[in-house]
């Protein structure tokens, strides 16, 4: 087997197929969820629901530990709070502000943007990898998480961890030949793209649905008399 061929396959036909499955799968899920419909208000709520949605998003963004509504979450689950937060932040920085990934977006969307210097993205990547290891160990030993974790959850971790790790090693040209790591990186990304619509990683879209629904439901504060 020649790694050049594997790489061309992973960057070419397999990536295309994975992307198409990803698009079809995500749209299927999206349409299906929208089709479930919002529950209708039979009476007018007391408070503005729009304001509730806005507040819900603001609360989702303002997640610093000193904010009152976060304090409780933070003190009860510091590991998940810190490692989880760092992981999501790192992932965003790497995928959107990393030069190599911006070039992927550019080739797909037709336009690019300024990126962060490599050393900065690099520190985010390192922190993200550490966060992933922490979350992995936490999942292994936390008795409640153990009950909630099945094959799908382990696959989620695997499919996100492999691209992350190979990407990091690749950028630094360590241990293996570049095209070998590049191939594994692309293969795992292809599998990740196919896996996302069928897994909880789809929360990167559905998070916004739950934020909106919860916001408008919780904002009602009873009925207007």
């Amino acid at each position: 087997m020649n790694w050049n061929d594997v790489l061309s396959f992973a960057r070419g036909p397999l990536f295309q197929a994975a992307l198409l499955i990803f698009i079809a799968g995500m749209l299927y899920r999206l349409v299906r969820v929208i089709g479930l419909g919002w529950s209708r208000n039979h009476v007018r709520p007391k408070k503005s629901q729009t304001k509730g949605v806005v507040m819900s998003y603001l609360k989702g963004i303002l997640i610093w530990p000193f904010v009152p509504w976060v304090k409780n979450t933070f003190t009860k689950n510091p590991i998940i709070y810190l490692a989880g937060g760092l992981f999501h932040l790192g992932l965003f920085v790497i995928l959107v502000l990393g030069t190599a990934h911006m070039l992927v977006w550019k080739s797909l969307l037709g336009f690019g943007w300024k990126t962060l210097p490599l050393p900065i993205v690099d520190w985010f990547a390192a922190a993200t990898i550490v966060a992933m290891v922490v979350l992995f160990i936490n999942r292994l030993i936390n008795p409640v998480l153990k009950l909630l974790t099945g094959t799908a959850e382990w696959l989620n971790l695997l499919f996100v961890f492999v691209p992350m790790l190979t990407g990091y090693i690749m950028t630094h040209h360590l241990f293996f030949q570049y095209e070998v790591l590049f191939s594994i990186h692309m293969l795992s990304v292809d599998f990740l793209l196919i896996w996302i619509p069928f897994s909880r990683i789809s929360h990167f879209v559905f998070y916004f649905f739950s934020k909106s629904i919860h916001g408008q439901e919780f904002a009602k504060h009873g009925v207007r008399a």
């Binding site: 061309s8 295309q16 198409l20 698009i23 995500m26 299927y28 349409v31």
Partner: peptide
């Protein structure tokens, strides 16, 4: 780092259509 080629517009539209219909 960019993929070798992006899916043709028609293919992408077909995939999107299939997803919507299924949904």
């Amino acid at each position: 780092s960019a993929p070798l080629s992006k899916p043709a517009g028609t293919l992408g539209a077909m995939a999107a259509g299939a997803g919507v219909v299924l949904g």
